[in-house]
């Protein structure tokens, strides 16, 4: 436990002063299946992006460009909710 802060160095009140610090915590290791994006079939409706619980669908200029595999837990909501007409996300066994 030596790398943890002691009581003299910890901020008071149990408060976290660094916002968004959970980004340093990797949850990608929870994954069994990973989402894979087929760019050619995607209509970029962004339903996967707005429904992703882990903020792990990467969007640039309004277009889906991939996944944040450090934080994607592989839940499959993106693939499940991808409109039937395109099915642009598929779940594959990870590793």
């Amino acid at each position: 436990m030596s790398e943890l802060l002691g009581w003299k160095d910890m901020p008071i009140g149990g408060i976290i002063f660094e916002s968004g610090s959970s980004q340093r915590y990797v949850t990608g290791g929870w994954r069994t299946y990973k989402p894979v994006h087929a760019q050619d079939r995607c209509v970029h409706c962004l339903r996967c992006w707005i429904l992703c619980p882990d903020s792990a669908v990467l969007v640039e200029n309004g277009r889906l460009v991939g996944f944040d595999y450090d934080h994607c837990k592989g839940c499959g909501i993106c693939a499940r909710e991808c409109p039937a007409k395109c099915r642009a996300i598929e779940m594959e066994l990870d590793r």
């Binding site: 943890l4 802060l5 002691g6 009581w7 910890m10 008071i12 009140g13 149990g14």
Partner: peptide, 8 residues
Amino acid sequence: YYFECKRQ
């Protein structure tokens, strides 16, 4: 971390 908060 809990214990350290109490010590403070």
